[in-house]
Structures are given as structure tokens and as C-alpha cells.
Design a protein around this nucleic acid. Structure first.
Lengths: 144, 144
DNA sequence: GTATATGCAAAGGGTTTGCACGGTT
DNA sequence: AACCGTGCAAACCCTTTGCATATAC
């Protein structure tokens, strides 16, 4: 995303341009997948004084103006993505913990049915799907 | 679930039958949907001295022996169900917060495709799907 | 009698908030 | 100059854990 583009977006939302804001955005774009802690670490490579709460506040702002989204993958911290990434579904294996991504397109028909049945418009990428990966599914399904 | 059935299941897993255990199970069955806190409240109607950590420990045990499951609905505490309930998908509206349930059967074809594409076997009921309900979808999609 | 369960209190991870100071506009 | 954004510390919610005691077997 070009510099003047995101500056515009922020200003349009009534927000100011600060170094921390810029660094958080760059970190999200650079990492592709990042938890708030990971984003903080990335930001601190440039500006070591930045605080975790600033990261949280800026992720919230960047999400509000539509430059960032988050998805819930495991039971832990959410991961943030830049919006121009491909929309994908995360599959989390409850056996081995592995996470794989598939193109969200595969869910289109299903989401259409859900909409017809209930009127609900689903953001399938917002939460990971849980289950068992091919390798773990063949084993005896004992809870980990 | 009949009394001797669940006693068997617990004993088979090497667990003992305690009043707290029984009350937690009954609370889950009675409430149909309940967070650990809600289950505690229900249990305490009969036995006021029971502790939250006991509820957590027993939910874990009951889940291990297959009498209870949990699903992640909002960003807060998970909700527990008895296993003999119908398997359903929770739809959470990010606009108004409403939660609706639909039969998990609607996802069968989709989950089949996911399995073919990746080998991944999905437990679609384990996490709620997020999006916008019919009422909120027609309004300007401003984040809450 | 012995191992498992319990209650309590403390600690833990992740996130939010109140406050005074500093920076952007 | 006004207001938004920041750092810091404390508070928050949900959950787990260590320990001594009680209880099921």
C-alpha cells in the first residue's frame, strides 16, 4: 500500500499519522501473519521504546479504517493480516497443532447456502476451522 | 444419559464418581449451553461450596470420556454442551452480537470438499462462524 | 490405606484502561 | 493551543497450577 494512500485513509477516519502507527502497519504487512506480541517485536527492531498497548491501540485503528484484519487461529492470541493479502481459511489440527491455509473460495457454495437458509453473511476467514489433518486422522483419535 | 451409563464411562476412564462431577454433568445437560461460570452458578444452586477450578477440572474429565464438548462462540469463555445434543453450527453476528444455531448437516458437502482437497477432517461445530446477520447486513457495515 | 478430587489462593496469558506527558495538527 | 496518541502501571477476564486436606475406592 502506497504511503499517501494509507495516510489518506487514516486522516479520513480522523486519525493522526504517527511513527508508531506507521511501524505497526509496516510490521503487519511485512510479517504476513502476526500476533500482537510478534508485531511488537518487529516494531521494536526499529523503535525499541514502543509499548504493547500502543500496538493494540493501533491495530484497532488500522482495522477500523480497513487496512488490517485479524483471525482467530488457536486458543491464544489472534493473528493480524494486511487486507490486501489473499483471503484464506486456516485449518488447525487438534492432533498435532499444525496450521494450514486454503483459499476461501472453496467455501463459496456453502456460504451461499447458509445465506439462503438464514440470511447470515459469513466471514469464513475470521476464525480458523478445527479438526484433524490427514496425518493425524489416521491415528487413533485420542485427545491430546 | 442414564446414571449407570455415565458412571461406567467415568470408571472406564479411571475416574471416580463424585458429587461435584455428577452436578457438573447435570448442569451441562440442563443448561444446554453454558460457560464454566454459568455451570458453576447452576451447580451452586445445589452445592454452594463448589469451586470454579473444580468445574474446570470436571469439564475436562467429562470431555475426555466423551460426555461433553465445548465450542468457542464469542471472544470470551467457551460454551459446553452435552454430547447427545444435536450437532450445530453457531453463527455470531459481529454487528449486534446475536448468536443463532443451524444444523451442522448444511456443511457436509463443504467439509467433503475440504477433505478431498487437503485430507483435513473438520469439526465444524467447534468454533462459531462470524459475520453479519440478516438484519445487520442491510445496514451500513460500520464496525461496532 | 492409597490414589484421586477438592478448595483455596496465587500465578498465568492476553487484553484493556486510567492517567499524565508528549507529539500532531 | 487543542486534542489525539503514547508509555507506563495497574486492572481485567478467563484459565491453570501448587498445595494441603478430604474423600472415593
Amino acid at each position: 500500500m502506497a504511503k499517501d494512500q494509507w495516510e489518506q485513509r487514516l486522516r479520513a477516519g480522523g486519525y493522526r499519522i504517527t511513527p508508531q502507527r506507521q511501524l505497526v502497519l509496516e510490521a503487519v504487512e511485512g510479517l504476513r501473519h502476526g500476533t500482537p506480541e510478534e508485531i511488537l517485536a518487529e516494531v521494536q527492531r526499529t523503535a525499541s521504546g514502543v509499548n504493547l498497548s500502543t500496538v493494540y491501540r493501533n491495530l484497532e485503528v488500522l482495522e477500523e479504517v480497513g487496512m488490517v484484519t485479524h483471525a482467530h487461529i488457536g486458543h491464544g492470541a489472534p493473528t493480524y493480516h494486511a487486507v490486501d493479502d489473499h483471503v484464506h481459511i486456516h485449518l488447525v489440527c487438534d492432533g498435532c497443532g499444525a496450521v494450514q491455509s486454503i483459499d476461501a473460495e472453496i467455501a463459496e457454495a456453502f456460504l451461499g447456502e447458509v445465506k439462503v437458509a438464514t440470511g447470515f453473511v459469513t466471514d469464513i476467514s475470521h476464525v480458523a476451522l478445527h479438526g484433524r489433518c490427514a496425518a493425524c486422522d489416521v491415528n487413533i483419535p485420542v485427545a491430546p
